Simulated assay, not measured.
Amino acid sequence: MKEVEYFTWILPPSVWNKKPYPSRWKMTAEEAAGYGAISRVDASREVRLQGETPEEEAERQRGMLTNAWQSKGPKTLE
């Protein structure tokens, strides 16, 4: 697993906003560059674990399931 940093970013003015404004969702630096972000809000830093391979990512997501019907199966007492 690798750690990926996400931030709220300050985005440039748009049709709906006359001044630069903070993004409504957190993005990585690469995603923010695609939106033309001006700067990041350092206080909004969030670190998320991400699988390095598709199999590792699928295993991580399975581990986060909360519904009983989605879990790996019933635990038996022995």
Rank of each mutant, 00 (worst) to 15 (best):
S44L: 05
G63V: 04
E78M: 02
E56W: 02
T76N: 07
E56F: 01
I10G: 03
E31S: 04
K75F: 01
P12Y: 13
Y6F: 10
K26R: 14
P13Y: 13
R45C: 07
R24S: 12
R24E: 12
L77R: 12
L49N: 11
L77N: 12
M27K: 01
P74W: 05
R40I: 03
W16G: 03
L11V: 06
G73R: 00
W25D: 11
W16E: 15
P74V: 10
T76Q: 07
Y21L: 04
K18V: 05
L49R: 08
R62N: 12
K18P: 02
E55I: 07
V47A: 10
I38Q: 08
K18Q: 13
E78L: 05
V4F: 02
G73I: 00
P20S: 15
T53W: 02
S23I: 09
K2C: 09
D42M: 08
M64T: 06
I38P: 00
E3Q: 10
T66Y: 04
R48T: 04
Q61M: 11
P13H: 12
G34W: 02
P20Q: 15
R40C: 09
R40A: 07
P13V: 13
S14R: 01
E56G: 11
K75L: 10
W69N: 06
V4T: 12
W9Q: 04
V15D: 15
N67D: 15
